[in-house]
Amino acid sequence: MPIVAQIKAELIENTYYVIHMTGEIDVNQLPVLESITKPLLEENNVKGFVINCSELTFIDSKIVGYIAYLYTTLTHSNKKLLIAGANDTINDILTLVGLNAIITFFPTVDEAIQSFNI
């Protein structure tokens, strides 16, 4: 049974946002992803975002493009974007376009959050 596509943001320690993406996220979910994440980009107290891919089964090129946009926008504000829990499929998609060259990947969300404090 396919996992229902779902996107939600969670504020951790009042400092990091974890973006949980679940199921197949493609261009149809892009407006939801934008509406959730865009306001969060403006928050000054936030040090960075972690995209939790542990329940993610597929993303298309539009979502990859939006992740690149998040990376650029956050980097301009001296904030970080990290990716956590990507399975082989997601890892392949992100690696194929070269995002692994600019974004750090972590096996779990906890490890990604810990890296903020190092």
Partner: peptide, 17 residues
Amino acid sequence: IRSGGIALGMIPNVAQI
């Protein structure tokens, strides 16, 4: 063969990649 590199237009300088 993985093409490697990074997509055009993502970051300003890709010379190292």
